[in-house]
Structure formats: C-alpha cells, structure tokens
Design a protein around this nucleic acid. Structure first.
Lengths: 171, 171
DNA sequence: CTTTCCCGATTAGCTTGCTTATTATCTGTA
DNA sequence: TACAGATAATAAGCAAGCTAATCGGGAAAG
C-alpha cells in the first residue's frame, strides 16, 4: 500500500467503487465473449453451462441443476423451456416422484459436446492470457474465498429459513 | 471419471467449468447483497453505481455514464428512466448540442449520499472478510488483468468498427 | 447550401436473473 | 386414514443487460 501520490491510482473512495464494478465487468465480458463464440450455434453462455452439467451426468432434476448453477429454480425453469423449444433437451417425468421432472439431452446437444467445452476453454484461455498457472490458481482461490464470504453474508441477511427460534427483535 | 478419490477437487475439465461459473457467482452475489442493503431505500445496486458517479460529478451525459459503467447506452437510458420516475435524478437538455441530455441529481438523491457509499463499502468489507490488504490488492490487480484480456479479446471479435479496409471475405 | 455521414438517445424485443405466489405431490404424524 | 407441512415445478411481473433499427441533430464535404 502506501503509494505516496505518484501513481494514477484513484483515492480510497473511488478505489472501492471500482472494486465493486470490476466483478460485474469481468462477469459480463465473459458472458459476451462466450455468447459471441456460441451465437453461430444458436446457443448462449448460460445454456452452455447448463448443458455442460448434463453432459457430465444426464437426467438431472431441475432443482439439482439450480444448485449446480447457483441460480433459482425459476431461472432453471425458464432456461429449460427455451432449451426444450430449441430441441436441445427434453423433460421427462420422474417415475417415483410425480412432482419432479428430469432433463435429458437430445442427440443434437450431444453432438455439440466438443463445441461447448471448446468455447468455454477458449474464453478461459483468453481471460487468463499472460498469467502463470500459479497466478490463475491464486486468483481462483481468492475468488472462492470471496464467494464463501458472500455466501455467509447472504445467509445472515435472510434469517427467514433457519434460526428465528424466538428472536423477534427485528423491525 | 478418474479422480483419484482423495481430494474433493474435481478434475481438469470440471475445474475449468467451475472457473467459468465462479465469476458469475461472485458478481451475482455481490448484487444480491447490495440489493438487500438498498431495498429499504427503494434503490438497486446498479442504480447506486450510477448515482455514485453523479455524486462525484453531476450533470454527465448518458454516453459518459455508459462508458463509466461499462454498459451500453440503451441500458443507461432505461436506468435513467427508472431513476427519473423515482425522482432521484432528472434529465436536462444540453445547451450546445440538442442531441445530448445531461443527468442531474435531485436533492433526494444527494441526501442519501452516505447511504450509497456505506452500502458499497459494507459489501466490500463482507466480500474481503479475512483477507489482508495485500491479498485484496492482489485479487483486484489480477481481476484488472483479466478485464484487460477480455477487452482485447472482445475487440478482436468484432472487427465491424475498426479495420475492415477491403476485407470482404466474410461468410 | 446541400448532401452525406456520424453520433446521442430511444424503441422494440430478447435472455437471464430475481421475488412472490400457486399448484400438485409427497411425507410424516396424529 | 387424514391432515398438516415440506417440496418440485411453474406463473406473473420486474430489473438489467444485450442487439438491431430508428430518429433527430451536428459536422464536414462537395
């Protein structure tokens, strides 16, 4: 730190603002880069993340997909709608539980397998260009810590599910 | 799948998939955390990023805001619509160029100044909990390099603006 | 002066995510 | 057995991005 006023580094307040935005920027740019690669195949980045999980193991329930993708079941529902309309996947009823629907890849999706992983790998390669393996590992491990911190913070923010035994001190 | 069964670490392919997702996760969780803090004030995280730039300097054009926020002018237009409807800002025509509109804070927004910066700082504090200043600096500098890499990659992907002197070899 | 080109803002329509509320089904307990 | 509560999926409606297309206003040729 220290940095006695020589660098073009903004001051503390501005720095924190920039810290806030850079996570959004990187995420959005990754989406854009991936979308650009996938557009010729009629796919989007979010769809590819979902399909990649199905390629690892087919026939997952939508709740399983939601947990793997870290999004809500409602978002999964919409995505599966679109994927089904485009004939990449199909829903089939679970036999033992009529509430759940399992999502299966259709042959058209399976045949695109290499495209999906190559597109993702290509964006990673671009993202980490000029970085050593050690730097990439370091970055990812720091990101995991941030994710863990935010998970904790978000759990603390919504005490609606857990806790609340007799704690009625809220507003 | 191989995976010699000791660590919970997935193998390379899965690792890369996770690398792709973690940037989205962190960005989204930051949004959620910030939104939760701001909801009582009737604001969203994206709106606060925009307002914070106006607090630094009022009366910017929408294109300036788009560049600062790293989003498109269309997105800015929509956000300013909502901010204007909620009486946080107002649009005024530029005098010298009738195409451009400048966005000015209204008193209600100025009075929230401390709320905005505190919310952002709070999310940063949560995000970086348990990390040393050095680690945070390192993370941010790595993120900046990733952003730079992606910027370059995205420029290369759309040769529609630059280049294309006589290159008509497209599809 | 006019024509052509560029540029700021907007509209229309899309994807992806969210919250809240509904519907059906399952499960556990009285 | 019956009823209460959890759980899987969906519907409705919103925010925030995006691209492509449009409109009006500058600016620089001719």
């Amino acid at each position: 730190m220290a940095q006695t006023a020589t660098l073009p580094m903004p001051e503390k307040g501005q720095f924190e603002n920039e810290a806030g935005l850079i996570f959004q920027h990187v995420a959005r740019q990754r989406v854009k880069a991936l979308d650009a690669l996938l557009a010729p195949h009629g796919l989007t980045s979010a769809q590819v993340y979902l399909l990649n999980w199905l390629l690892r193991e087919d026939g997952r329930t939508q709740i399983e997909l939601a947990r793997l993708l870290n999004i809500g079941t409602v978002a999964v529902s919409g995505m599966v709608d679109r994927l089904e309309a485009a004939e990449w996947v199909e829903r089939r009823a679970d036999q033992s539980d009529r509430r759940t629907k399992r999502v299966f890849l259709k042959p058209s999706a399976m045949s695109k397998k290499h495209v999906l992983s190559e597109a993702a790998a290509s964006v990673n390669a671009s993202s980490f260009d000029g970085m050593t393996d050690g730097e990439v590992d370091l970055l990812l491990s720091l990101m995991r810590r941030v994710r863990g911190n935010l998970n904790k913070a978000l759990e603390g923010q919504k005490p609606s599910l857990a806790e609340a035994p007799n704690d009625k001190t809220s507003d």
